[in-house]
Design a protein around this nucleic acid. Sequence first.
DNA 1: AGCTTCCGCGCAACCGATTGCACAAGCCAC
DNA 2: GTGGCTTGTGCAATCGGTTGCGCGGAAGCT
Lengths: 363, 363
Amino acid sequence: MRRSPERRVVLADVARIAGTSEATASRALKDDPRIGAATRASVRAAAVKLGYVPNAAARSLRARRTHILGLLLDDLADPVHGKVAAGFEEAAAAQGYAVFMMTGLHDLEREQRALTAFVEHRADGVAVASCVSDPAEVFARVPADRVVFVQPDYPALASGGDPPTRGVLRTDDTAGVVATVQHLVERGYRRIAYVGPGPGSGASDTLRRAAAAATLEHLVQRPIRYLDVGVDGWRDASSVARELADDPPEAVMCYDDKLALALLDALRSTRVDVPGDMALAGFDGIPAAHQSLPRLTTVDVPSVEVGRRAVEMLLASVRAGVMPASEVISVRLVIGESTPPIPSPVRSRGTRETVAARRGTAP
Amino acid sequence: MRRSPERRVVLADVARIAGTSEATASRALKDDPRIGAATRASVRAAAVKLGYVPNAAARSLRARRTHILGLLLDDLADPVHGKVAAGFEEAAAAQGYAVFMMTGLHDLEREQRALTAFVEHRADGVAVASCVSDPAEVFARVPADRVVFVQPDYPALASGGDPPTRGVLRTDDTAGVVATVQHLVERGYRRIAYVGPGPGSGASDTLRRAAAAATLEHLVQRPIRYLDVGVDGWRDASSVARELADDPPEAVMCYDDKLALALLDALRSTRVDVPGDMALAGFDGIPAAHQSLPRLTTVDVPSVEVGRRAVEMLLASVRAGVMPASEVISVRLVIGESTPPIPSPVRSRGTRETVAARRGTAP
DNA sequence: AGCTTCCGCGCAACCGATTGCACAAGCCAC
DNA sequence: GTGGCTTGTGCAATCGGTTGCGCGGAAGCT
């Protein structure tokens, strides 16, 4: 099998076969009204016959428009980011845009390289999802009117000195946390702990923490208890479980479902029953949270929709030539089995029987 | 705020500032040994000062090499595909390649469009992960020496008439299934069912089914029982659960973890205890499978590694100008709690007590 | 018939970077 | 002093389409 059987076919080939100039061929292929029907047909035929595929690089060089979008995110393997990516890609494809996806993996240098790559390829728009770079660093590379920050790191935005009031797409995490706290309080829980990554690791974290604290203090006049799992998060869930087992709160809110599920697993190993001994709530609504035992009370975040909206914001702003507006996407509390009504104001650790009864599986 | 504060800076600007020609500037920036140190320095300085970022389109137009790879997969939101994508992106980025990611979502037309997009952008290489298109259709658009099929659909390959013996990257699913069956048999299970998507939906399915059947028949001289969940797979897990509950096998092997977890959840609703009443095994080793209750016996597939290898295969073949070789990546059985040794050859349905005892949580 | 108008098409410049080739110095040797 | 070499630069072509402008011919009008 010989290499490159036939040289890549170019517009000149099509024009030659069709017996026209390149200019005419080019116009015929894009339905320019100035081209006659007969000419158009023969150009079309030639293009199909030769299997002509225009060279996007050449085209965008001239057009100064690439029909490329860039998406920078932390980790494609993460379920939440994966859904954002899926929505982004789908919406972009629907509009005829190709998507460069690059992951930052919490590495500043990688993020910089990714942004530079987007600029090298002259992406028409760039979405930056939860990165560790300052917005100032982003703007230093990418024009501000072609960037949308998705779930941005607010502390970083603040440290950037000039937090943009536009071009931010986020989910209403605060509302989600408030709803969760209210739900817990309604169900009778008072001593509530919050487990999440350390401060400075991201915006959502800060938002969620603050919201939880404010709501709880408002509702039960009691401070929330924080457990830090570090920036890497859910890795050392077992040590958190031990800490919780030593001085068990009535309910635990987790930064996200991934952490909640890891903690659920770790608590199980520590002989702490959820929800018998301790209620547990997550955040994000990943599939596993809806299939776990017990099903997790969590906040469904429409991540796919987030990805889609990011594309729409980018394209709208690029087309209009203005900075994208900001948007907030609402979330929805989903009550699972991990936060049942508390049996009595003062409880001993639940017994297996009560748990079984609550699950409706007792004899 | 005015649009496009300053026109994008081009090489000519750098050259002008540095007081050289574009040719010299270009060479200086890429460390051409023919350029003097002084000239090089002034060009460098000018480039930095202006914030020059070369235009990849222009460069690759001339170089006929884009440093772009394309990755076509079904669904970015899927955990397995997400890991493949993550590994692919990481390896590509490490080699200085940007990645176009497009999803096919089992839609033939979308896949075609994605492949066309890759060709338009003249991707140096394309990885096709589990698509529904014939390889013939793929090769009709993308040169065969720049494609790697990842976990390809073998039936489709066969129907293509010319199954390539090269350019295929797959995991050793057969070995994984064989190991699972052997494990089940060793643990005493004999009446084993296999639940998976219908035939023709994909290669892995076919492979896994065939391997399961062959191994089981070899080991216990007994045919395997198939339950079809349709091409869409795991959606109607509850109906599968009812079907299983009516005539329960001793163990169920699932096509993948996603299906296994859905089935686990559905069985729970059907009052079938796993593993008390029925053992369950999955495939893929997604995180949720390692955190479920009971932890699933499954086959860890190094999906991230798959993505990485795909990049290496592509780059190696593109550089050498030959078709990529084929590779097989091995997998590893991970024994969870969902397939404990069978208590006795003939059992009644397990009671809650026995289950609790088996879990080691009885009083 | 002569003039205007419209239609269909091609010439050539252009997008931005790369590179083959030639040319201009500077240096040494004869 | 001039030829031979090395070094450092620049001219101009090139990659593959796109597009402003102009031109020739056919049709319409008086």
